[in-house]
């Protein structure tokens, strides 16, 4: 038995559960219902303390003769592999890009070298434009996302919880959702001119629908048995919502928000492509007009990075929520 296994057994004994010295991937405590997430994903109660970093400390002291506690998780479950594995393809792409552009296989007017894109970034940063563009675009996304998601949560709750709300609102909202997003642009520009409002409203429309749809459906499909149990124990109305419905839909709400955020970036570019004087969408269209392909690449890369970054933040919350509420 390796060091980590020894630590594992003590933690299991502490919880008074059956012997945990079986293979760790099957060593979950007596479990009913849905299969648990990855090994090592349990809570602080010590039922199944994961074989991660904090586990190796005591393990090493338990079995000092083993040079290094052997990590027996499959490769795909180890953090370093996840990080490195995710970075492999971008690095490979960068290398190929570098090779292709230095070999002159594709003219630089079609494909600038990575260095040219980097220099374009430095150039824009020195003029103070890069920071400004990124800031204004992020601000628009966040404002539009917050507005749309808030309204989506509210209307999703009304439609999902109340039969009457469903009857009154769902058909209309369904019809509005069917309107292609870009169809709103001329109207928004006429109503709100080419200011911040028109862009933020367009982004809000983009963020609204995923949240509304997912939240309404999730609330409608909360386990009826749990609802009945809640009612049987004296919960109704607001208290039933707080006790059963809300906690039951927290994971869905977070996936909805994640989807809405992705939509927000999409709609940002749509809004900025059409009418703007700054922002990443403006950088795209302006560089297109001026033939600055290096800046086009820069804008695309920035959108990828920003989108992935904001998504990762919500993803973090989502994972925690699933652990806590599912």
């Amino acid at each position: 038995m390796s060091g980590t296994d020894a630590a594992k057994t003590t933690s299991t004994d502490r919880a008074g559960l059956p012997d945990g010295s079986v293979d760790r991937h099957f060593a979950a405590p007596v479990v009913v219902g849905r299969p648990t997430a990855a090994a090592g994903s349990y809570d602080e109660s010590g039922t199944d303390v994961g074989p991660d970093a904090k586990d190796t400390g005591p393990a090493a002291s338990v079995a000092p003769r083993s040079r290094e506690p052997r990590d027996r998780r499959p490769l795909t479950r180890r953090r370093w592999f996840v990080v490195v594995g995710g970075a492999l393809l971008p690095i490979a792409l960068l290398l190929v890009w570098q090779l292709v552009s230095t070999n002159g296989l594709v003219p630089v007017s079609q494909l600038p070298s990575p260095e040219m894109v980097w220099l374009a970034a430095i150039d824009l940063a020195q003029r103070g434009l890069l920071g400004q563009y990124v800031a204004i675009s992020t601000q628009r996304v966040l404002l539009g996302f917050a507005t749309g998601a808030a309204i989506g949560l509210a209307l999703g709750a009304v439609v999902g919880l109340s039969r009457l709300g469903d009857i009154l609102l769902a058909p209309t909202l369904g019809a509005i959702r069917a309107v292609p997003s870009l169809a709103w642009v001329p109207l928004l520009i006429l109503w709100f001119k080419i200011g911040e409002e028109s862009k933020i409203i367009l982004i809000a429309i983009g963020a609204f629908f995923p949240v509304y749809t997912i939240v309404a459906a999730a609330l409608r499909h909360v386990d009826r048995q749990l609802l009945e149990a809640g009612r049987a124990f004296g919960r109704h109305g607001i208290s039933l919502f707080a006790t059963v419905q809300l906690p039951a839909v927290v994971p869905s709400v977070l996936s909805a928000l994640r989807l809405a955020l992705a939509q927000s970036w999409l709609f940002l570019v749509a809004a900025e492509l059409i009418a703007s004087s700054m922002g990443l969408g403006f950088l795209l269209v302006d560089s297109g007009n001026n033939g600055r392909i290096d800046r086009i690449f820069l804008a695309i890369i920035l959108l990828a990075v920003l989108g992935k970054l904001t998504d990762a933040i919500i993803g973090l919350f989502e994972r925690r929520a699933i652990l806590r509420w599912a």
């Binding site: 048995q225 749990l226 149990a229 009612r231 049987a232 124990f233 006790t243 599912a326």
Partner: peptide
């Protein structure tokens, strides 16, 4: 409706999965 003088034990445990055992009992 949902008479307070009764306590119901369902065929399934019907525990709220996000609550601890103690908090589930407290629901009653």
């Amino acid at each position: 409706p949902y008479d307070r003088r009764t306590g119901v034990g369902f065929q399934e445990p019907r525990l709220l999965p996000w609550r601890t055992i103690a908090k589930n009992v407290a629901l009653g």
